[in-house]
Deep mutational scan, measured.
Amino acid sequence: ADDEVAKLLVDAYRKNDEDKLEEVKKRYNISDEQVKRLIRKVL
């Protein structure tokens, strides 16, 4: 599931889509710190 979330985050990140990032964060209840970590893992 982590990889799936990471893909969604990276996708939103690449598109610079703040709304999507927020949506994913809320849906999976993850912190900014986790977001950064997941994005770093993929990029």
Rank of each mutant, 00 (worst) to 15 (best):
K26L: 10
K26Y: 06
D19P: 06
D32M: 05
K26C: 06
N29V: 02
K20C: 07
K26S: 09
Q34D: 14
D19R: 14
D19F: 12
Y28G: 01
D11A: 09
D3T: 09
N29Q: 07
L9T: 01
E23F: 08
L43K: 05
E18C: 14
E4Q: 09
K7P: 03
K25Y: 02
K7H: 10
A1W: 15
I39E: 01
L21K: 02
I39D: 00
E23R: 06
E4M: 13
K7V: 07
K20Y: 10
R27Q: 11
V42I: 14
K7I: 10
E4R: 09
Y28N: 02
R27G: 02
R40S: 14
I30C: 07
D3C: 06
V5I: 14
K41N: 11
L38W: 05
L38V: 06
D11I: 06
L21Y: 04
D11W: 06
I39H: 00
E4Y: 14
N29P: 00
L38Q: 02
S31Y: 01
K36P: 03
R27D: 03
I30V: 07
V5G: 04
Y13G: 01
V5E: 02
K41S: 11
N16I: 03
K20V: 09
N16A: 07
L8A: 08
E23W: 12
K25M: 10
A12K: 00
D19I: 13
V24M: 10
L8D: 03
V35D: 01
V35K: 01
D2Q: 10
A6P: 03
A6Q: 07
D3M: 12
R40Y: 15
K25V: 04
L9I: 13
E22A: 11
K36Y: 10
Q34Y: 12
E18Q: 15
K36V: 11
E22H: 08
R37C: 10
L21A: 03
I30A: 00
K7N: 09
D11T: 04
V42C: 07
D19N: 12
K26R: 12
K25Q: 07
R14C: 15
R40M: 14
I30Q: 01
E33S: 07
Y13W: 15
R37G: 08
D32S: 07
K36Q: 13
D32Q: 05
A6G: 07
V35M: 13
L43S: 05
I39K: 01
E33V: 06
A1R: 10
I30F: 08
I30T: 01
V35Y: 11
A6C: 11
K41Y: 11
R37L: 13
V24H: 03
K25I: 08
L9N: 00
E23D: 08
L38N: 01
E33G: 06
E18G: 13
D11S: 06
Y28E: 01
I30L: 15
E23A: 10
K7R: 13
E18T: 15
V5R: 02
K20S: 08
S31Q: 04
R14D: 05
V10Q: 07
K41L: 11
V24C: 04
A1F: 15
K26W: 05
N29C: 07
N16T: 03
L9F: 04
K26T: 09
L21H: 01
E33P: 03
L8N: 02
L43V: 07
K26V: 07
L9Y: 01
L43M: 10
V35I: 09
E18M: 15
K7A: 13
E4W: 14
D17I: 03
K20P: 01
K25D: 00
E22S: 08
N16P: 03
A12T: 02
K41Q: 13
D3V: 08
D11H: 06
R14S: 09
N29I: 02
R27M: 13
Y13A: 03
V42R: 05
V42G: 08
K25H: 00
V24Y: 13
L21R: 02
V10E: 06
K15Y: 07
A6R: 07
Y28S: 01
S31V: 02
K41I: 09
K20G: 10
D19Y: 11
R27S: 05
L9D: 00
N16E: 07
A6E: 10
L8G: 02
S31R: 03
V24S: 01
D2C: 12
I30P: 00
V24P: 00
D32V: 04
A1N: 13
Y28C: 03
V24G: 00
K41T: 09
S31I: 02
D2W: 15
N29H: 08
K15G: 08
E33N: 06
D2E: 12
Q34L: 08
N29K: 07
A1K: 10
E33C: 08
D3H: 11
I39P: 01
R40K: 13
Y13P: 00
Y28K: 00
K26G: 04
Y13E: 01
K20M: 14
R27C: 07
E4I: 12
R14P: 01
L38R: 01
L8C: 06
N16W: 08
D2A: 10
A1G: 11
R40F: 15
D17V: 03
R37V: 11
L38I: 14
V10T: 07
K36A: 13
K25A: 06
D2R: 10
K15E: 12
L8M: 11
E18I: 15
L21N: 00
K36N: 09
V24A: 03
L9E: 00
R14A: 09
V24F: 09
D17N: 06
D19S: 13
V5Q: 02
V5T: 03
A12V: 03
R40P: 02
E18F: 15
K15T: 11
R14I: 14
L8K: 05
R37K: 13
S31N: 09
D17L: 05
R27P: 00
N16Q: 10
Y28I: 01
E22K: 10
K15A: 14
E4K: 09
N29G: 13
N16R: 12
V35P: 00
K26E: 06
A1I: 15
D19V: 14
D2L: 14
D3Q: 09
Q34M: 13
V35G: 03
R14V: 13
I30R: 01
A6T: 12
R14W: 13
A12F: 05
L8R: 04
K7Q: 12
I30Y: 05
R40I: 13
E4C: 11
V10I: 14
S31K: 03
V42W: 15
V42Y: 15
L9H: 00
R37H: 12
E4L: 12
K26Q: 10
D19M: 12
I30M: 13
K25N: 00
V42P: 03
K7E: 09
Q34S: 06
Y28R: 00
S31H: 03
N16H: 12
L8E: 08
D19T: 13
D11E: 12
V35H: 02
K15F: 08
E33T: 05
K20D: 03
D32A: 07
K36G: 08
R14K: 12
K15M: 12
D2P: 10
D17E: 05
D11Y: 04
D3I: 11
A12N: 01
K20T: 12
A1D: 12
L21D: 00
E33A: 09
V10N: 03
V42D: 04
I30W: 10
L38G: 01
K20Q: 10
D17Q: 06
E22V: 06
L8V: 05
D32P: 04
K15Q: 13
N29W: 02
N16S: 07
E4H: 12
L43H: 05
N16F: 07
K26I: 08
L43A: 05
D17T: 02
V35S: 06
V10M: 13
K41E: 12
Q34P: 02
A1P: 14
Y13M: 08
Y28L: 04
D17G: 02
L21Q: 02
K36R: 13
V35T: 06
V24D: 01
E33I: 06
V24Q: 01
D17M: 05
N16L: 06
A1V: 15
N16Y: 06
D3F: 11
D11R: 04
R27N: 06
E4V: 11
A6V: 14
D19G: 12
L8I: 07
V42K: 08
K15W: 09
R40T: 12
K36D: 12
Y13N: 01
E23S: 08
R37S: 12
D32E: 08
A12R: 00
K41G: 09
L43F: 10
K15L: 13
A12M: 03
D2Y: 14
E33M: 06
V24K: 00
D19K: 14
N29D: 06
V5S: 03
I30H: 00
A6Y: 13
E22R: 12
I39C: 04
R40D: 15
Q34I: 10
D3E: 10
E18R: 15
L8T: 03
V10R: 05
A6D: 04
K36E: 14
D3G: 09
V10D: 03
L21P: 00
L9Q: 00
K25W: 02
K41F: 10
V5W: 12
N29F: 05
Q34A: 09
L9P: 00
N16V: 03
E22I: 09
D11Q: 06
E4S: 09
R27E: 06
L21S: 01
L43W: 08
